[in-house]
Write a protein that binds this DNA or RNA. Structure first.
Ligand SMILES: [Mn+2]
Ligand SMILES: [Mn+2]
Ligand SMILES: [Mn+2]
Ligand SMILES: [Mn+2]
Lengths: 159, 159
DNA sequence: TGCACAGTTTAGCCTTGGCTAAAAAAGTTT
DNA sequence: AAACTTTTTTAGCCAAGGCTAAACTGTGCA
């Protein structure tokens, strides 16, 4: 007796049928939500990394690493400031607030889990870095935990 | 003698150091590129699914499943038409062009690989569907191939 | 047949996140 | 100190993708 007998539709049909409209809509809504916070997170994470590795986070460096113009960075910095994530004085380095540091730390951790998971799957480093940069914002806590555990096992088994 | 001796930086430093600025910038650029085509692909894929499963793709149904207003859908349909992906006459169902069908098919395949990969990792169905909807657009061909192979092995081993 | 209602389209608003050009401030060199 | 260069900021343009409100079309039912 299969264990899925009273557990929803036959798995063999699970791929060919569409989910009910409301569930389907929630999928896309989750993606839109992720996209709203995505760029903010990447900026905060990058600023944290620059502070750690270079000692300061200048607009020029942020622009170079983001691959955008300084004007774009300047306006984003203002937004981060408005949201209480960074402090900045004109013509000076940018610093993270307590909230900013928390967000940077969480993003860094999440990014690392996804990146190492991809590496442990056998994806080459450059590709893994590109994929992780986008995927990280669309991975639920559930999936993140599973990825982390997978990586841990992979690394232990490889000793 | 470790095999990575002449193969770039010591792996133990690979996570703590930032990539060179140009490579870093390319990461973010890849994400921005993905976001440009992402919504188009989801619309085309959804229209294809509706045509297959419901026989026609009406704006109302698209709006309900996307979780957006009909006005939003109407304008998107015009864009898809401009790009030669759909044909549509006023107040009638939407159909895919040859190009549209190709895109729908590719998206459907890619979406399926990511979804089944997540399931085979042990992620529950509802969560897997949400994560796949976002992740699918940020998975390189390389990673997609590895995911596919992983899923295949997992399923064969489970027999 | 005519009318009401559901579906569709259009017009116009807003925010986000790119961009360029130009002004202003800071830093460096002579 | 003055001049030059780099960095930062500001102003304003554009496209994408949400939204509401209102006009329009088509369909089904009285
Ligand atoms: Mn990212
Ligand atoms: Mn999809
Ligand atoms: Mn998607
Ligand atoms: Mn995305």
């Amino acid at each position: 007796m299969p264990t899925y007998s009273d557990n929803g539709p036959d798995p063999s049909e699970q791929d060919t049928n569409l989910p009910p409209p409301e569930q389907h809509a929630r999928q896309y809504a989750a993606v839109r939500d992720a996209h709203e916070t995505e760029l903010i997170e990447d900026y905060v994470e990058l600023i944290g990394d620059l502070l750690d590795h270079a000692g300061e986070a200048r607009a020029t460096d942020i622009a170079a690493r983001m691959g955008v113009r300084q004007a774009t960075v300047a306006r984003m910095i203002r937004r981060l400031n408005d949201q209480g994530l960074v402090t900045n004085e004109p013509y000076r380095s940018i610093f993270l607030t307590e909230r900013g540091r928390t967000m940077a730390e969480e993003s860094r951790k999440r990014h690392g889990v996804v990146l190492q998971f991809l590496r442990s799957l056998g994806v080459d480093d450059a590709t893994a870095r590109i994929d992780a940069e986008g995927m990280e914002h669309h991975v639920s806590e559930t999936t993140l935990g599973i990825m982390h555990e997978f990586t841990r096992r992979q690394n232990n088994g490889g000793d």
